[in-house]
Amino acid sequence: MGACVGLVPQPYDSGESQVDQGISKQGNRRVRALLIEMAWTWLRYQPGSALTQWFNQRTQGTGPNRRARRIAIVAVARRLVIALWRYLKHGVIPEGAQMKPL
């Protein structure tokens, strides 16, 4: 699912060197931007979820380094789109997510 929207690392292979570059950007640009905004919203409104805790642990020692936070939010967006696909397909609620009663 992450590959469909262009939120996976693009591999670079040369000889014995194998490095992951930035995101592939193969999907729709607007969908990618919307998913990244959705990831920021997820962090704000789901502070107890596993994704938010992972983001906080990952960016804890970066201080004012905004680049590290922007890189990590792309990973959160990719994980979030996969988690939401699982929710739609199989009914599995993302770990730690708070659902409002209807």
Rank of each mutant, 00 (worst) to 15 (best):
A97Q: 04
Q57P: 06
G61S: 11
I36L: 01
E37C: 06
R29H: 15
V74N: 11
R69L: 01
W85M: 07
G96V: 08
I73V: 03
V76F: 01
Y45I: 02
Q10E: 08
Q21M: 09
Q57L: 06
A83Q: 11
R79K: 13
M38Q: 09
M38R: 15
G27V: 11
G27P: 15
A77V: 15
A75E: 01
I36K: 00
R58P: 00
N56I: 14
I23S: 03
P64M: 06
L84R: 00
Q53V: 10
P47T: 13
E37K: 08
Q53E: 14
A3V: 03
Y45T: 02
G61D: 15
A75K: 02
Y12F: 11
G2K: 07
T59G: 07
I71F: 07
G48S: 05
G63N: 04
R70N: 02
D20N: 15
V76M: 04
G22K: 00
Q26P: 09
G91N: 04
H90P: 05
E95Q: 13
G61A: 08
N65C: 14
T59D: 07
S24M: 14
Q53F: 09
L43T: 11
G2P: 05
D13H: 12
I73Y: 00
N65T: 11
A75M: 03
E37N: 12
G96Q: 06
R69F: 01
W85R: 09
P47I: 12
R70L: 03
T62D: 14
Y45F: 05
R30F: 00
V92Q: 10
N28S: 06
G27E: 13
R30Q: 05
Q18R: 10
A68W: 01
K100E: 14
V76I: 08
N65Y: 12
K25L: 08
R86V: 06
M99K: 09
Y45L: 09
V5R: 02
L7S: 01
R66Q: 12
R67M: 04
I93E: 02
Q46L: 14
G27F: 07
E95C: 07
P101E: 02
V8A: 00
I36C: 02
R66S: 05
Q46G: 14
Y87N: 06
T62I: 14
